Simulated assay, not measured.
Amino acid sequence: MIQSMTAFAREASQGDWGTLTWEIRSVNHRYLEPHFKLPENLREIEPNLREGLRKHLNRGKVECALRWQPAEQTGQGFDLNIELVEDINQAANQVNRILDNPAHLNALELLQWPGVMKTAQVDAAPLKKAALDAFDLALKNLVDTRTREGEQLKPLFDQRLDATSAIVNQVREKLPAILSAQRENILARFEDAKLELDAARVEQEMVMLAQKTDVAEELDRLDAHVKEVRSVLNKKGAIGRRLDFLMQELNREANTLSSKSIVTDTTKAAVELKVLIEQMREQVQNIE
């Protein structure tokens, strides 16, 4: 089953303690790389958040940001930590006396200092529970979005896999005619050179040509890889790495087909295959 690594989810929750708002963004990444931005009084729930994330996601860079706005009616206004402000100002003055070009702190910088703006104590238990519940909902929405994005990619793969199989079949059907035409070319070169036709020599040339241009194995492997890609696309769980490996194998066979080409038609077919494979590979980079 295809699941994209690109998605966004937002979930808000309200209560006596105020408003909690989660925003989760995910983009493609080789591994699962979560980042959390939490209010100071909710940092201790991060291990629970990470555990929940690992249960639902396997890959992707995931940024999770939580904002808490205390409710005004509960008196959860901000208080200024005067003692901390005085300590910061005193320390800044000591440093400025050492510096050649001192820069004084302004009020906005002080207000942004951790701990300067403090809130009245609230009951932490319901706030933490609400944050965890809201996160679960946001994460579910994120997974649903990634799934919908993945479902939209399925027809794109089907189209390109069908086109790949069609090209492989065309090359396979043309191989006898290609070898026959090359046999005629060899005979014509002998005649043009006014050389006595030696049946053994002609057969030797044909054997060498057949060995050089034998792409039956490459065509069979291309068919096998296409079949495996179709199978992987219908599997559950993380499939991106497996698909990436299969794209490499498909590209390897297309390159070999190109190197063994002796006619324009085969060369063109190999180029078309590589274009299709590259289009699929670009999509695979965003699949979990």
Rank of each mutant, 00 (worst) to 15 (best):
V275E: 08
R201Q: 12
I277T: 08
A65M: 10
L156P: 01
Q170T: 13
K268T: 13
Q112G: 00
T256V: 03
I287F: 02
A91R: 12
I88S: 07
D79T: 13
A107Q: 14
D158F: 00
V215H: 06
S258V: 01
L273P: 04
K274H: 05
S261R: 00
L99S: 15
P34R: 00
Q248R: 09
V116A: 01
Q152S: 09
E173P: 00
Q3T: 15
L209W: 02
Q76A: 15
Q121F: 01
E40N: 10
L197F: 12
L276A: 08
E23Y: 01
V27D: 09
A193M: 13
A91K: 09
T119W: 04
Q90E: 15
E191W: 03
G237F: 05
G150R: 01
Q112S: 14
G150I: 01
E218P: 02
T6G: 05
M1I: 03
F8W: 11
V122Q: 15
R43V: 13
A131I: 07
V263L: 02
E278Q: 11
K236H: 11
A269W: 01
A193N: 12
E278F: 12
L219H: 07
R201T: 09
F135D: 03
E23Q: 14
R281P: 04
E33M: 07
E72Y: 07
E282R: 03
N93E: 15
I178H: 08
T213K: 00
E249W: 06
E109M: 07
G60A: 04
A199S: 14
E83Q: 14
F135C: 05
R230W: 05
K140R: 13
K154M: 05
I82A: 13
L105E: 07
V215A: 08
L53W: 04
V215T: 07
L84E: 09
S13C: 10
R201W: 04
W113E: 09
D136S: 15
A166E: 15
Q285V: 05
A107G: 00
P34W: 00
E218L: 06
E151S: 10
I88Y: 10
I167C: 01
T145P: 00
L127H: 01
E149N: 11
E218I: 02
Q90K: 11
V171H: 03
R50N: 12
I239Q: 12
A200C: 01
D123M: 02
T266F: 03
L222S: 09
Q204K: 04
G52P: 06
A9R: 00
T266H: 07
K118N: 13
D223Y: 08
V116G: 02
T256M: 08
A7M: 05
S258Y: 05
L187P: 05
C64P: 13
F78Y: 11
L108S: 13
A12I: 08
A254W: 06
Q152G: 10
A193F: 10
Q121C: 03
